[in-house]
Design a protein around this nucleic acid. Structure first.
Length: 849
RNA sequence: GGGUGAUUAGCUCAGUUGGCUAGAGCGCCUGUUUUACACACAGGAUGUCGGGGGUUCGAGUCCCUCAUCACCCACCA
């Protein structure tokens, strides 16, 4: 079969992927006790993949394919995430478009509807993963709502329940009044907002005096339960312990001291509203203050407050209260002020800190165990800076609110006594809304788990903890790879939960990739409209090209703009491979049989084989250290600059098919993790090793180092010199070479071809331009031709002189001779000798004219 | 406020434990359709490695400092 002039990825990729799957190429082999295990961070089943996903797949798949070829028993487990809140938001807006709301349905109905909605969209995402070339075992595919995941989540919750690590408490939570659910701390985004700072006068009891407090939220005055000052603040010392009569409600509240208060902000006195501010809440806990809720979950003024404020929105209440206070002459002043406001990361509604009954996980003991493991460096982080960032996060961690008031997610397996709100029981029969136990009726909690509570258990859940064969073999995972934005949400929680449940770290290495930014360096975002969809790119340039384009020049943890030129570079490389294949194919026929033990006969054979061995070793060392870009760079430049530009070119005069095919076969192996589709396409077309996928073949061994010699390097240097002569004198110049050098004499044909010589012959030489890259080789130029070359020689001479001066200065430095490592000094001396020799040769050339 | 990273050729970026003449791709200039490849081939130009200081025989690399940018964490009422 003839190959087209250019590689057309669309023609090959889908078929190759299907062949891999049909042939079981990505299955665990059980052939080795060494393993490599990795799981795909499950993408949202309901959404399309973006370039960041493609980068994730690229990085993970390179490692998976490389390790598979190394003979390690390899699993790459794919999955999809129900993405609780994310998907819920999409579905709820779909409902709204249809003129319906969540209140038109029961939670059970909603759950079923979203299930179908996701199921019908999920295939898109899965097909996209396949287009990206992911070498995953699809039989192990897991969805975060699969029964085994639900079971594990329930078991974990039960264990925490029994260990006293989970509690139900009325705590201050971040609450989105639009979506009607609470959030964890890290789901709130803060932004600067221009606002006001109101200075309010609070009358002291039995006195004409006031204490002035500054606030950005005057409406919360209705829920104040104290005024706080710094204990060291002299101007308020006498007031500590006094009582304030809260304006409007006339409630009496204490003035107390707490180091949290900063004397130099505002007036140095703070109103304390525990039910609606996280710092105030903490302070109230310390001082045992009552907590009075005045805003409800709809963002409406509610509770035990004066009737005129009931039912007002927060902003209406703010206006009215300021108005009322001004009438009472209790507003001292108003300043413009820019403060940080928390917003819902989805709908940008202002987050209300509200007291709410939620399930919490006590994080301190769990985090301590994780910190302990991290501080022992049990997990390698790439980049390493992420290790300390993680430890810092774990040290400051707060209790985790794991309940969400939405329908879409894993139900919390807890039931509450209908007659006793403090009587909760654990029960996994979450398909029932009501249980009767010992004559008591229990109602199921309608909340679901935070998505991260289930995805945080991904590693051991996927591997069928505790009894699964997979768990025994593949845990801890070899590598966890993901984006930096979910280091805390996901990676840290996996570490915490993995250690808690299994007693062992969940993975040995963490690789964090940076963002794929837009080409101008800004963040890609749907609302800005600068998102690049990888799928059209894959269709246009090929999956391999996109993969290569994403990893070139990328290092762990560093954000970088998307650059189409890198994709083009990837495509060009794929096409280069393709054309090397075409060339080799033209030199072989049906009778050709591949030999894994080639027979080197020429200097170029030995040269290319020893280089290949080095490259195989280099790439594998770099990949073992997750240096993807450098690894690709190494095989790229060997393939292009050494193999194609020198070895193939010299093959045109001295063909050794056994070495040629051997090298290319091994290049394909090394290239495979970076360019799986085209390497497999060529492998199949060449049909040298019948019945075996490249994907399941083995990584080249380092051999042929013993055959290295420098003879071909001399030919390369000589060729480069002659080409330069020719380029300097003009391409039409006829160059005739005469050699009195035995090595060169054997390579005259090759040299003629590579250097575009008119003639090359053995002879005594001695006239014309003496070349310096090899001994006793001349170009028979006339005196007038050489004249045109003299300037170039003079420049070369200046370069040589500069280098020689540099080296001599170094060798005259006593400290250098004494303190630098001996081998460097020797190298310097050798360099000096070489350059001096070059200078002499140049002088001879110049003298000869 | 705290932290992390970045600043290297016109552009996008590499450059592990300090080691000599700092690299890649694209772009640019000159030439070429030469037995696979113009998604190519050959040759060439381009960098006071952000500024300043220090350690060292030697600094893009280590330390200090300043500047600019990005991100993360906390959040001051």
């Amino acid at each position: 079969m003839n190959l087209d002039k250019n590689y057309d990825p669309v023609k090959y990729e889908p078929k190759i992927y299907q062949n891999w799957i049909d042939g079981g190429a990505f299955k665990s082999t059980n052939k080795s006790s060494e393993y490599f295990s990795i799981v795909l961070p499950p993408p949202n089943a309901n959404a399309s993949l973006h370039l960041g996903h493609n980068l994730t797949v690229a990085v993970e798949d390179i490692s998976a394919r490389y390790n598979r070829m190394q003979g390690r028993d390899t699993v790459f487990i794919p999955g999809a995430d129900h993405a609780g809140f994310e998907t819920w938001v999409v579905y709820e807006s779909k409902l709204n478009k249809e003129g319906k709301t969540r209140f038109d349905f029961t939670n059970k109905q909603l759950y079923d509807q979203v299930w179908d909605f996701v199921a019908s969209n999920q295939q898109t995402m899965l097909n996209q993963l396949k287009k990206m070339g992911i070498s995953a075992d699809w039989d192990r595919f897991t969805y975060t709502l699969d029964q085994k995941v639900v079971n594990q989540v329930h078991n974990t919750f039960k264990k925490m329940w029994q260990d006293g690590l989970v509690y139900r408490g009325e705590r201050l939570v971040n609450y989105c009044t639009f979506h009607g659910t609470s959030f964890s701390d890290i789901e709130v985004v803060y932004e600067n907002q221009a606002g006001k700072l109101w200075y309010l006068k609070y009358p002291l009891k039995d006195s004409q005096d006031f204490i002035v407090v500054a606030t950005t939220r005057p409406e919360t005055i209705l829920g104040d339960t104290a005024v706080a000052v710094n204990p060291k603040d002299k101007k308020y010392l006498s007031l500590i312990g006094k009582t304030v009569v809260l304006p409007i409600t006339n409630r009496e509240i204490p003035i107390l001291s707490d180091p949290m208060v900063e004397s130099d902000f505002g007036t140095g006195a703070v109103k304390i509203t525990p039910a609606h501010d996280i710092n105030d809440y903490d302070l109230a806990e310390r001082h045992n203050l009552p907590m009075i809720s005045v805003i409800n979950k709809q963002g409406i003024m509610d509770g035990d407050i004066p009737v005129q404020y009931l039912g007002l929105s927060v902003s209406e209440a703010r206006e009215k209260i300021i108005n009322d206070l001004e009438k009472l002459n209790l507003v001292e002043k108003i300043e413009d002020y820019s403060n940080r406001v928390g917003y819902c990361y989805k709908c940008h509604t202002v987050i209300q800190p509200l007291l709410s009954k939620q399930w919490f996980v006590k994080m301190k003991p769990l985090a301590d165990a994780a910190i302990n493991q991290l501080e022992q460096s049990r997990i390698n982080f790439y980049p390493s800076s992420k290790l300390n960032q993680s430890i810092e996060y774990l040290k400051n961690i707060r209790d985790w609110n794991i309940s969400r008031q939405i329908a879409w997610g894993i139900p919390i397996p807890a039931f509450q006594n209908k007659l006793d709100e403090n009587d909760w029981i654990f029960d996994e029969r979450v398909n029932q809304d009501e249980l009767t136990i010992n004559g008591k009726t229990y109602l199921r909690d309608q909340d679901v788990f935070d998505t991260w509570f289930s995805s945080g258990q991904w590693p051991y859940t996927l591997l069928d903890y505790p009894d699964g064969e997979s768990f025994k073999k593949f845990y801890p995972l070899s590598l966890m790879e993901t984006g930096g934005e979910i280091l805390y949400q996901w990676v840290c929680r996996m570490i915490i939960l993995g250690i808690y449940i299994t007693g062992e770290i969940p993975f040995k290495n963490v690789y964090i990739h940076g963002y794929v930014l837009a080409d101008d360096g800004s963040k890609m975002s749907k609302s800005v409209g600068n998102v690049v969809d990888p799928i059209p790119l894959i269709d246009k340039y090929g999956s391999d090209a996109v993969r290569i384009g994403l990893i070139i020049g990328r290092t762990a943890g560093v954000n970088r703009g998307f650059d189409i030129r890198k994709i083009e570079e990837g495509r060009n490389f794929a096409n280069k491979l393709w054309n090397i294949a075409r060339f080799i194919k033209s030199k072989t026929d049906e009778t050709f049989s591949y030999d894994d033990n080639p027979n080197p006969t020429s200097p170029q054979d030995r040269w290319v084989l020893s280089k290949l061995g080095e490259i195989s070793k280099t790439v594998s060392e770099l990949l073992e250290n997750y240096r993807y870009s450098e690894a690709f760079d190494a095989i790229y430049s060997f393939t292009w600059n050494d193999f194609a530009d020198w070895y193939i070119e010299s093959s045109k005069t001295q063909l050794n098919v056994s070495v040629l095919s051997y090298c290319f076969s091994n290049i394909l192996r090394i290239v495979h993790p970076f360019a799986p589709f085209i390497s497999e396409a060529i492998w199949g077309n060449l049909n040298w090793q019948k019945g075996e996928f490249l994907a399941t073949s083995s990584w080249p061994e380092f051999k042929f180092s013993e055959v290295a010699d420098n003879d071909f390097q001399t030919i390369i240097n000589l060729t480069t010199e002659i080409r330069f002569v020719k380029a300097t004198l003009g391409a039409e110049t006829k160059l005739n070479l005469e050699s009195n050098n035995p090595l060169i004499n054997k390579q005259l044909d090759t040299l003629t071809s590579l250097s575009k010589l008119s003639t090359a012959k053995e002879g005594a030489g001695g006239s014309g331009l003496k070349l310096h890259s090899a001994d006793n080789v001349w170009i028979n130029l006339s005196a007038s031709e050489i004249k045109n070359f003299i300037n170039s020689l003079k420049k070369q001479k200046q370069d040589q002189l500069a280098t020689i001066r540099n080296l001599e200065a170094r060798l005259q430095n006593k400290s250098y001779l004494e303190k630098a490592p001996a081998h460097l000094v020797v190298e310097t001396k050798n360099d000096l000798a070489t350059h001096k020799f070059n200078l002499e040769e140049l002088d001879k050339q110049l003298d000869s004219f």
